[in-house]
Design a protein around this nucleic acid. Structure first.
Length: 470
DNA sequence: ATGTCC
C-alpha cells in the first residue's frame, strides 16, 4: 500500500494521504489490501458518512475541509493569458502549448516563450521559458536542477580519434558512471570544493543530502544523459574562441545534479503546493514568494544544485582529458532547468528556462541532436521575443513507451552502423528515431542562435537499458 | 530526471 494506490481511488495530493497511510498501518494492517481500498474509497466518496466513525472521523473531516477549501482558498488564474512567442509551432505537440497557455495566466507571469523542441512536462512544458515577478516555480525549473551540456574541444585531429577508437572506448568506460543511485566509491571518489559549500549547512534537509552528493559527484544520470566523444567541425576560423577552421576531437557531456537535485526539486515542489494552492489545471505551477524564507531557501538550494551539476561535468572532463592525454583548446558549458534573475523591460524578473538554453547576445551554448544526428555549438542572438533563449536539443517526437514499442533493435543497430557510431548502453527509448529532426528544429530558431560549429558523435555512452548498472 | 515509498 502506498500513496499511488490512494491516488488511484481518488485521494488528492496532500496531507490526507499521509494520514490515511498512518491509519492503515496502525488499524488495518492485517486486512486484505482490496478490502481496505474499498473502505477508503467509500470514505473519499462520502466523507460525511464517516464523521462519527471512531477511527476514520479525522480523515473524513480533513476531506470535507479540503473540498470546501478547494473552492474558496485557491489563487485564481487570470482570465486572459499574456501573449507569448512560439518558435517552430509546426513541431510542437498540443499538450505543451496548452501547458504554456495555463502558465501565462499565472498572476505572477510577466512574459513567456516556447522553444521548437517543446513537449509536455509537469507544470511548465519542457522547452518553456517563463518570466515571473518575485516568484520562483520549482516545476518551472524542473526535476533535474541545473542539468547542462559541457564541451571540451581538443587539439587532436579527427584522424587520430578514428585510429585510436579502442583506447577512447576503454577510457570512456573506465571514467564514467551512469544510472540512478550510482556514483564513485573508495579511491575512485571524486573531490571538489562544491562539497564544502556553506549552502550545504543551510537546513538539516540539505545537510542530509551531502553524503549522497559526495558519492555521486562526477557521475552521469539515466534517460537522455550521455558522455560522448565526437568530431567537431569549424567551417571558418572562430576569432573569439581562437580556433582555426578544421576538425577536432571533442568531448560532450549531458547530465545534471543527480539524486541531490532531484530530492531538492521534490521537496520544494511539495512545499510550494502546500503554500500556493492554484486551480487544478495549474497545481504543478505552484510558486514560492522570493521575498519569503521558502523562496530564498529554494533559490539557494537550486544554485547549489547548479554548482554541483557543474562540478560533476568538470570532474568527468578532467578525468577523461587526463586519460586521453589531450590539450583543451576551448571549453563551453551551458545549463537549462534553472532560473535566473534578469532584467526585462527595466524590471528584474525571474526567468525560468525548463529545457531551454540561454541565448543572450554572444552567449555560447551547445544544442545536441541525437546519437546519430549532429549537435551544434551556437552563439546567442539575444532575441527578446524568445526571452534570450533557444532550444536545448531536438526534443522527443516519440514518448519512451512509444519508442520501445515502435523501434526494433535491428533498426537501432542499422542506424548506428550507417552513421559509424559506437554505442555503450542506452535502450530503444533513446533511439535517434525517437527524436525530432534537429535540422528542422535549428531552422525554426535561426532568429535565436547562430551556428558556430557542428559536432558529430562517434562514441556514445548512456545508462544501461532499462535499469541501473553497476 | 530520480533508488519514485508522501
Amino acid at each position: 500500500m502506498n500513496g499511488d494506490d490512494l491516488k488511484a481511488i481518488g485521494y488528492a495530493e496532500g496531507k490526507v494521504i499521509r494520514m490515511v497511510l498512518d491509519i492503515i498501518e496502525n488499524n488495518y494492517a492485517s486486512q486484505e489490501k482490496e478490502e481496505v481500498l474499498n473502505l477508503f474509497k467509500q470514505v473519499v466518496l462520502h466523507p460525511e458518512q464517516f464523521l462519527d466513525h471512531a477511527v476514520l472521523k479525522h480523515i473524513a473531516q480533513t476531506l470535507i475541509e479540503d473540498t470546501q477549501g478547494a473552492e474558496t482558498d485557491r489563487i485564481p488564474l487570470k482570465e486572459t493569458g499574456i501573449n507569448y512567442a512560439v518558435f517552430g509551432a509546426d513541431y510542437i505537440e498540443a499538450g505543451a502549448v496548452k501547458q504554456m497557455e495555463i502558465a501565462m495566466k499565472l498572476p505572477v507571469a510577466v512574459a513567456g516563450a516556447l522553444m521548437p523542441d517543446a513537449h509536455q512536462g509537469y507544470g511548465l512544458p519542457i522547452g518553456g521559458v517563463l518570466a515571473t515577478k518575485n516568484a520562483i516555480i520549482p516545476y518551472g525549473v524542473g526535476v533535474d536542477i541545473g542539468c547542462r551540456m559541457a564541451l571540451s574541444i581538443y587539439d587532436i585531429p579527427a584522424e587520430y580519434f578514428l585510429a585510436n577508437e579502442a583506447m577512447y572506448k576503454r577510457e570512456l568506460i573506465a571514467w564514467t558512471s551512469f544510472g540512478a543511485g550510482n556514483g564513485w566509491n573508495g579511491k575512485d571518489r571524486a573531490a571538489h570544493a562544491v562539497l564544502d559549500d556553506a549552502a550545504f549547512n543551510m537546513t538539516p534537509f540539505i545537510k542530509n543530502l551531502q553524503d549522497k552528493a559526495a558519492h555521486q559527484l562526477g557521475s552521469s544520470g539515466g534517460g537522455n544523459h550521455f558522455v560522448e566523444f565526437g568530431i567537431i567541425e569549424f567551417k571558418t576560423d572562430d576569432v573569439k574562441l581562437n580556433i582555426k577552421k578544421g576538425t577536432y576531437v571533442a568531448l560532450l557531456t549531458h547530465s545534471g545534479s543527480r539524486g541531490f537535485g532531484a530530492t531538492v526539486a521534490g521537496n520544494y515542489t511539495r512545499l510550494a503546493k502546500e503554500i500556493c494552492k492554484l486551480p487544478n489545471e495549474a497545481a504543478n505551477l505552484a510558486y514560492l514568494d522570493m521575498n519569503r524564507a521558502e523562496g530564498q531557501e529554494y533559490w539557494l538550494a537550486m544554485n547549489l544544485a547548479g554548482d554541483y551539476a557543474s562540478a560533476c561535468h568538470e570532474i568527468i572532463h578532467e578525468r577523461l582529458t587526463k586519460a586521453i592525454g589531450g590539450q583543451i583548446l576551448a571549453k563551453v558549458e551551458n545549463h537549462h532547468n534553472f532560473a535566473w534573475k534578469e532584467m526585462l523591460n527595466g524590471e528584474e524578473v525571474i526567468v525560468h528556462r525548463k529545457g531551454a538554453t540561454p541565448a543572450a547576445e554572444g552567449v555560447m551554448g551547445i544544442i545536441p541532436g541525437s546519437m546519430t544526428a549532429p549537435g551544434f555549438l551556437v552563439r546567442g542572438k539575444g532575441e527578446a521575443a524568445a526571452i534570450h533563449s533557444a532550444s536545448h536539443g531536438a526534443g522527443r517526437q516519440m514518448s519512451r513507451t512509444q519508442a520501445i514499442k515502435n523501434i526494433s533493435k535491428e533498426e537501432m543497430r542499422k542506424i548506428l552502423k550507417d552513421h559509424g557510431v559506437t554505442l555503450i548502453g542506452a535502450g530503444l527509448d533513446e533511439a535517434p528515431m525517437a527524436y525530432k529532426n534537429i535540422e528542422r528544429v535549428m531552422a525554426a530558431q535561426k532568429q535565436l542562435v547562430d551556428v558556430v560549429a557542428t559536432f558529430t558523435p562517434k562514441l556514445v555512452r548512456m545508462a544501461a537499458d532499462g535499469s541501473r548498472e553497476d
